[in-house]
């Protein structure tokens, strides 16, 4: 309202009153009622517009403008209040929906892969990254694949290193549960021609009483590389590269002379103790090293068994137990925990 609109002063009061009532409206219904009352057909503003006709032209123009302004002000007040009330309602509705998300009890859970599977997958992935294939073979094997072709002739004392479980199939002691994953080496070499870069994970068996550090069924992973001019230095380098990729930076491997009929020279391979990183601790018997597995250069007799010329091809093989490695890594004192199938164990990993 301008003070120039002196003749319209009564409208000023009316508008101020209307705005006050709109602002005080407590809900949408009241607001709709006010809308009709203040701006509808029977409202004072409509009546005033009708009364304009009795005024002179300049007065009418002046009063008309004032009247339009008054109507706009009331409409604006109604809109503002409507938005306020809507916001309040939405807030109230949302507040009513408020939820403590920590109350939620999950109705579904994800299962866990067995620790052995997880380790096996990771090992496979490391070797796949190094350009290796993953090969598998049967767990029930013939003497040929498990021993004979691997340079363990019948009666060889080294066969006593393996407490073999035999199966009642074929002639006595001709069929057995593989004592290592090495028969897969023979199967791979029989099926393909070099070069070969392969790892062979799988379950193996020994006639062993289950105790904290032995299981009659256990898992190994084995690697085989056959190519021209493969050397012992390549074996050492491959194990170093694998060790670092799998166990982490700063973990190295070392080789010590050992004996396996199917490799020569043969070696045990140790890795830097993953707990003390070589300083010496209880886990590594203060040596700074953990024993991991066995390895060596493929014995010429093994190549002869599969029809490879040992003067053309050389190769190396390595292998280690997965179960013991993960037991050590996760601080599992008793290997039997791995086979209890207790969900309180399975769900930890």
């Amino acid at each position: 309202m301008t003070d120039a609109a002196e003749p319209l002063a009564p409208w000023g009061d009316l508008v101020a009153d209307a705005i006050a009532r709109v602002a005080a409206a407590s809900d949408a219904t009241e607001l709709r009622r006010l809308d009709v009352e203040l701006l509808g057909r029977g409202s004072a503003l409509v009546a005033a517009r009708a009364a304009l006709a009795s005024l002179s032209a300049p007065e009418r123009r002046e009063a008309g403008r004032a009247l339009n302004q008054a109507r706009a002000d009331v409409e604006e007040a109604l809109a503002v209040r409507r938005r306020e009330l809507e916001a309040q309602e939405r807030a109230a509705r949302l507040e009513a929906e408020r939820m403590d998300l920590t109350e939620v009890r999950p109705t579904r859970r994800r299962g866990h892969l067995h620790l052995v599977t997880q380790a096996r997958d990771r090992l496979e992935d490391v070797f796949v990254g190094m350009g290796y294939q993953v090969a598998e073979g049967p767990e029930a094997e013939t003497d040929w694949y498990n021993f004979e072709a691997l340079n363990f002739p019948a009666g060889h004392p080294a066969r006593n290193m393996y407490d073999t479980l035999y199966l009642e199939l074929g002639p006595p002691e001709s069929t057995l549960l593989r004592t290592h994953t090495s028969p897969v080496q023979i199967r791979v070499m029989e099926a393909t021609t070099p070069p070969i870069y392969a790892v062979m994970p799988g379950r193996c068996y020994r006639q062993d009483t289950a105790d904290a550090s032995h299981l009659p069924n256990f898992h190994q992973i084995e690697g085989l590389v056959v190519d021209r001019r493969i050397s012992f230095a390549d074996l050492a380098g491959t194990l170093d590269a694998f060790t670092e990729a799998y166990f982490g930076t700063g973990i190295r491997s070392r080789l010590r002379p050992s004996y396996f009929p199917f490799t020569e020279p043969s070696a045990e391979f140790d890795i830097t103790c993953v707990f003390c990183r070589g300083d010496g601790c209880r886990s590594c018997g203060r040596t700074g090293w953990l024993e991991l597995g066995g390895c060596g250069m493929v014995h010429p007799n093994v190549f002869r068994a599969v029809g490879y010329d040992p003067d053309v091809w050389t190769g190396f093989a390595f292998g280690f137990g997965i179960d013991r490695m993960i037991a050590q890594r996760h601080g599992i004192d008793d290997l039997r925990e791995l086979v209890t199938n207790d969900v309180r164990f399975l769900r930890q990993f």
Partner: peptide
Amino acid sequence: VARLHGYRAIAPTLPRSPFTGGLT
């Protein structure tokens, strides 16, 4: 010869696989 030379005296080398590794 390897034993008396010392396994650790043999400098490691890394052979390169000619394959792209992979799962079946």
